[in-house]
Amino acid sequence: MRNIRAQRRAVLLGIFAAWVVSAAFIAAGVLFQVRTGAFFGTPARATAFALSMAGLALVAGIGLAAASRHFLGPIDGGGPAAGSRLDLTLRYVTNTTEQTLAFSLAGVACLFADESLAQRLLPVMGVWFVIARAAFFLGYRIRPVLRAFGFAATFHPTIALLAVVLAQLLA
């Protein structure tokens, strides 16, 4: 029972840390872009960059799963052993697919709702998406409860983006 409490505390700490680090990274990135004028040309190009970054995180996972299956087995397409490198990589791919879909929908909605916001915010969020997915993957490999930071650092900014877009559309 004590172990479960410790794991829950670790997950909550990861979530809280993700909120703080995500907010700081995204705010600093947007501020940098505004101060330097380092935009991606058009809102559509900025959105394309952000969605490409999310796609990169997904493709990296698929490539790792293929390599793990080829070099570490089972190459016949059978299910991996629970907790194996392939099993954890496939879990990463599944979660990253879900996260990529949510982020992509939020990003496209942002582009349609507010091009200026999309141009400033989405490239930064795209870079953060890749960093957060890497943190999820590494955390999972080290100790599964450590994936909480990467999960929250991907999921909660996407929720915030959806909330901002919906608030603008409903205002």
Rank of each mutant, 00 (worst) to 15 (best):
90 L>H: 00
107 G>C: 06
94 T>W: 14
4 I>L: 13
102 A>Q: 03
7 Q>D: 14
11 V>S: 02
124 V>N: 05
150 G>H: 05
65 A>C: 09
112 F>A: 03
18 A>H: 09
163 A>K: 01
8 R>P: 00
146 L>C: 05
108 V>N: 01
112 F>M: 11
123 P>A: 00
147 R>N: 01
36 T>F: 09
118 A>Q: 08
47 T>L: 10
16 F>L: 14
52 S>P: 01
37 G>S: 05
88 L>D: 03
11 V>T: 13
130 V>K: 00
47 T>P: 08
49 F>V: 07
123 P>R: 06
2 R>E: 15
88 L>Y: 08
83 G>C: 08
109 A>W: 14
165 V>R: 09
64 L>S: 06
55 G>W: 10
151 F>V: 11
43 P>T: 03
115 E>M: 08
60 A>Q: 06
124 V>S: 02
44 A>G: 02
74 P>C: 02
105 L>E: 01
46 A>I: 03
38 A>G: 12
105 L>S: 01
145 V>T: 06
134 A>H: 09
146 L>N: 11
129 F>Q: 00
129 F>P: 07
159 I>C: 08
121 L>V: 12
29 G>P: 13
142 I>V: 14
169 L>Y: 01
166 L>W: 14
65 A>D: 04
82 A>D: 13
136 F>S: 02
52 S>D: 09
37 G>C: 05
54 A>V: 08
38 A>Y: 11
18 A>R: 02
65 A>Y: 02
63 G>E: 06
8 R>H: 09
50 A>N: 08
57 A>L: 02
106 A>E: 07
94 T>K: 11
2 R>A: 09
22 S>F: 10
77 G>Q: 05
58 L>I: 06
19 W>Q: 08
146 L>F: 15
93 V>R: 00
139 G>E: 04
153 A>R: 06
8 R>Q: 10
15 I>F: 11
100 T>S: 14
122 L>K: 05
15 I>Y: 11
2 R>S: 09
70 H>I: 01
105 L>N: 01
107 G>W: 09
90 L>T: 01
20 V>Q: 04
54 A>D: 12
41 G>Y: 12
139 G>P: 11
146 L>A: 05
28 A>Q: 02
25 F>V: 15
159 I>P: 07
